[in-house]
Design a protein around this nucleic acid. Structure first.
Lengths: 128, 128
DNA sequence: CATCGCATTGACGTTAAAGTCAATTGCTGA
DNA sequence: TCAGCAATTGACTTTAACGTCAATGCGATG
């Protein structure tokens, strides 16, 4: 495991711009260390970027992604906070289960659409 | 099955604004008929709204949703168009399969996070 | 030492997806 | 007939998530 990644390494690996990484830093999603003014990204930052992009693909906003990332971190020490956290996690999971239903329905409809196309193609293939 | 729905009926059912429905109409996603100037939404429009919102929950843009809706419609008549359509459908399905992987990973991590919280809570519950 | 090229910073611009607001319009019931 | 209320229209505004650009730093290299 490498110790540090440069900003351009990450932009290439994930196909995002430096602006995007700076934006995520401003938003407090990642916290690269500095050598002088230059950002050095640790493996943990790289992993966070992975998680951010995964969240984006699922249609989560930056704020939602921030919340989710909080959940991955060490659990809070206080009982009230713990209970709150558990409730929030459960909410997000329900959110994800809804997305899963949406996803399966969409996939099923696309399956059906493709079948129709293939059938139509077979008809044409036979007739011409 | 009702013949028509008013705009406010749909805004209430789906918890969206009239502005949103007008926007979807401008974007060519739905095509309510008119009685005078008043929009009348048919069951097919209502179903389209369902599909639009499902797409939104999955993080698709309006343009992507427009493409997906096209796929649900009757297959084109021409062979080249049919093959193109099949290819596009396959692309969207791959897109959705990626989302599914992302989703399962996220769910797994949230499961783990919740477990950590529950464990920590058990510790505190025992110790105090 | 000068310059080359990657990095940073700050400011302003852009795009998608609506929100908001004001000025009508048109039906409906008293 | 008229007041009231839902709908429409057009214009302008907003927000998130970056893009773009110009000015500047700075470390290595010839």
């Amino acid at each position: 495991m490498r110790e540090y990644y440069s900003i351009t390494e990450l932009t290439r690996e994930f196909d995002i711009s430096t602006r995007t990484l700076r934006f995520y830093e401003d938003e407090g999603l990642i916290e690269p260390v500095r050598r002088g003014r230059t950002r050095l990204f640790r493996p943990s930052d790289r992993h966070l970027v992975r998680q951010i992009l995964r969240g984006k693909r699922l249609g989560f906003s930056i704020n939602e992604i921030r919340e989710i990332i909080q959940m991955y971190k060490a659990p809070p020490g206080e009982v009230g906070q713990l209970k709150l956290m558990i409730r929030r996690i459960e909410e997000k999971r329900e959110d994800l289960r809804q997305k899963r239903r949406d996803l399966e329905e969409t996939l099923a409809e696309l399956d059906h659409a493709e079948e129709s196309c293939v059938e139509r193609l077979a008809e044409l293939g036979v007739n011409t």
